[in-house]
């Protein structure tokens, strides 16, 4: 599953990326494999979304979010 599958407030652990180019940008922002992320906001029109990762809030489009593989934690 990936970040785009989460609902607001749900958490996951990043396991990997399916897009190399995007992954480099996310890595720079502290979104690393093993890091816990929380889906914190969804824009009114359903896209983009915002996640909390490594103490910061990062917004990304749904399509980009779907390239971040996660393991959901409850």
């Amino acid at each position: 599953m990936n970040i785009a599958d989460l609902k607001i407030g749900q958490k996951g652990i990043v396991t990997g990326f399916s897009d190399e180019e995007l992954s480099l940008r996310l890595l720079d922002m502290g979104c690393l494999p093993g890091e816990e992320i929380t889906l914190s906001c969804i824009a009114p029109l359903g896209d983009p979304i915002a996640i909390d990762v490594a103490g910061s809030r990062v917004s990304l489009r749904k399509k980009e979010a779907s390239t971040v593989m996660i393991e959901k934690i409850s």
């Binding site: 990062v58 917004s59 980009e64």
Partner: peptide, 11 residues
């Protein structure tokens, strides 16, 4: 070039 939006929402 593909468009994207990865951006910090600062506190």
């Amino acid at each position: 070039q593909r468009p994207f939006l990865i951006m910090e929402l600062p506190s």
